[in-house]
Amino acid sequence: MHYRTALVTGASSGLGRGLALWLARRGTRVFAAARRQEPLQALAQEAQAAGATLEPLDMDVARAEETVARIRQLDADCGGLDLVIANAGVGGETSGKRFPWERTKQMIDINVTGAAATLSAVLPQMVERGRGHLVGVSSLAAFRGMPTHAAYSASKIFLSTFLESLRVDLRNTGVRVTCIYPGFVKSEMTANNRFPMPFLLETEDAVERMGRAIVRGAPVFAFPWPTARFAQLVHSLPDALFDSLAGRLL
């Protein structure tokens, strides 16, 4: 598929930055959204040097009502968004033994409410136009409630289930839905991870895989396959066995 216009949230670093540039280099007019504007300006200059069109957009998805209004206005101004990628997200530990409510609320505001606001803002308009593509970046951590990561795993479970229901609802409307489950990728989010990270991917490699999956309209894309297969196996374990194995990571 070819997209005239695309919105990518969380585009100031990591996968969001890479996806915004990947799409722009392929002829899409990309609106790169994030809170941090200095990295976005640098990204716009990099895109311009490559002859691509990328426009920075100041947006904090944690402010859900503002996000919806901003995306609707953008949709009207650009003649319709063809692709919306809800990538903005935050992580971190939320151990049940020392549970940090402030960090948990931040994850819910960004990973749950912010993602839902981003994806639903112009969904009625996409249905009316009979075209569009919604993409959410979940995580392999959504397959089970990972130890010390209750808020993060739960936030990604919400996103994947939200997208699954939308995918069923939107059949035969012309609007596609894709849920992406990345494994471990080198980024700001994983830089301080104290757990082992098998099959750790470079950002460029992960972006290329995600970009190809989006363009071909894959409904679900989990990668890399060894980590994805392991996550699927863990998902199928009986609760008692999972609790025992996961407890050894603490």
Rank of each mutant, 00 (worst) to 15 (best):
M1C: 10
Y3C: 10
R4T: 07
A6E: 06
L7W: 00
T9E: 10
S12H: 10
R17P: 02
L23H: 12
R29A: 14
R29D: 07
A34H: 02
A34R: 02
R36N: 14
R36W: 12
Q37S: 07
E38R: 09
P39Y: 08
L43Y: 09
Q45V: 06
E46A: 15
Q48F: 00
Q48W: 08
D58P: 04
R63P: 01
A64Q: 15
T67A: 10
R72S: 03
Q73D: 14
D77V: 06
G80H: 00
V84H: 00
A88E: 03
G89M: 05
G92V: 05
S95N: 12
S95C: 09
G96A: 12
G96K: 01
D109G: 06
D109N: 13
V112N: 00
T118D: 07
R129D: 09
R129N: 08
V135L: 06
V135I: 07
G136T: 14
L140A: 05
H149W: 09
S160V: 03
T161Q: 14
S165V: 12
R167A: 08
R167T: 01
V168K: 01
R171Q: 15
P182Q: 09
F199V: 01
L200S: 03
E202R: 11
E202Y: 01
T203Q: 15
E204D: 15
R209K: 14
M210I: 15
M210L: 09
R212C: 06
A218L: 14
W225I: 06
T227Q: 15
F230S: 09
L237K: 04
L245N: 04
L249H: 04
L249Q: 13
